[in-house]
Design a protein around this nucleic acid. Structure first.
Lengths: 226, 226
DNA sequence: GATATACCTTGACCTGGGTCAAATAAATAA
DNA sequence: TTATTTATTTGACCCAGGTCAAGGTATATC
């Protein structure tokens, strides 16, 4: 698959005329990373940003004790690592491939040159950043205003929504990764999955989750006591 | 003070030519809010964004049980409420004046028109959003990877840095607000202030904090055990 | 200056969820 | 398949920090 057709249906570049797309594709460099491969590290200086072409990339922080907190998991079409491009500062987190992945790298200088001539692109970029900002709002809200069962319930409802209302869900990431994404640890997540099963909210079979009590889950996500 | 001179030295509009500034000032509406006044509420649709001219505005979420989590506190020159302008979605949080404040409102339609003609403005806007994104990265990191003493230490160091290295600090917000900003409650914050005093890191007298052991605070902010 | 209204502190107590350890179960490699 | 690594679950235990309750101290209003 060539670069132009990959980027043509990303949030960031959609709606741009074909010649623009080709121009942008011209500055992108395709790269491959193996599972577990580090793409950039917290504190490194960035001279460009990325878009996922294939695979899954996690953005995360690590504490001194080695505990990890996932900030985002990005899939095909999603940009990441843009912060240094517009602030000049360092990457604020780490990026690592969760699976063997193909990514596109957009060098800062060439991209800034493009952006200076093109307003729809710029509005897309603003839209992407704003959406991400809103996601963070929700993440902070969950971390400090909800308990872990509430966060898990909210996550499952989000998954269901993404799969247009399906009740049979398949976790897109491992339970260990999910624990980190929810700001907890695998042991705790495991216990909560078990308890949500016992109480009849869901049934769990490996990565396959079936929602048995949608309304109940919604209540759990809201006021959170399991 | 007229609108043009207020906005001329904001992050967002600095560096723009004078006639541009005047044009932008033309679309802004000055408003006044009393202490405790609500500017917008979580879930409301936004048809514009704001810049603080005078006073202090807190952006926050509230849980069903009424616990509040401050996401940001913005002062003069700082924009807020921009997310709906670029996503079309609702405000993701509440905004309330902490003190009697003057704010400028920029209607969405007029602002989008401006942005479409002007690239330095657009790059400023991208810079502002990116910086805020980085702040959220840090906030999530603190909430899930640090304990409360570490967060407080990091906050005090940030304050010191903002007051170019001063060791005698004055809290810009009440301790209750600070508790919410750090993702905890006043009781816990109070105890931690007391303990940090006993251990000789700081001395506390109302809102006046003096840093006695800068290095110690840095260690506390890093690996966090008090 | 008195009275009301925040704001802050301290104590006693409890619980969500973390740590440590060990047993399975899956997944990947050989 | 078998071996080996990696992911998940379960149990026993513990502690940071939350809740509830009671004073204490500013700050504002009349």
């Amino acid at each position: 698959m060539d670069i132009a057709s990959i980027i043509a249906d990303t949030q960031l570049f959609k709606g741009l005329p074909n010649d623009q797309i080709r121009e942008i594709a011209g500055i992108a460099q395709k790269e491959t990373v193996g599972r577990g491969g580090l793409i950039f590290a917290d504190g490194e200086s960035g001279n460009g940003f990325y878009i996922v072409a294939e695979g899954k990339i996690k953005i995360f922080k690590v504490s001194l004790e080695g505990k990890e907190q996932i900030l985002h998991i990005f899939g095909p079409g999603e940009p990441f690592g843009e912060v240094p491009v517009f602030t000049g500062a360092m990457f604020p987190a780490n990026a690592e491939a969760l699976t063997k992945s193909t990514i596109l790298f957009f060098p800062k200088s060439a991209f800034i040159r493009l952006i200076e001539q093109n307003t729809p692109l710029v509005l897309n970029m603003l839209g992407v950043l704003s959406k991400r900002l809103r996601q963070f709002t929700i993440q902070v809200e969950h971390l400090s205003l909800k308990e872990v069962p509430g966060r898990l319930a909210a996550y499952l409802l989000l998954l269901s929504e993404e799969q247009n209302g399906a009740l049979a869900l398949f976790l897109p990431i491992s339970k260990g990764q999910l624990a980190s994404l929810l700001g907890t640890i695998p042991e705790t997540l495991s216990r909560i999955f078990a308890k949500m099963g016992e109480k009849g909210y869901i049934s769990v079979d490996g990565r396959e989750i079936t929602i048995l009590d949608f309304q109940g889950l919604e209540m759990l996500a809201e006021d959170g006591r399991l």
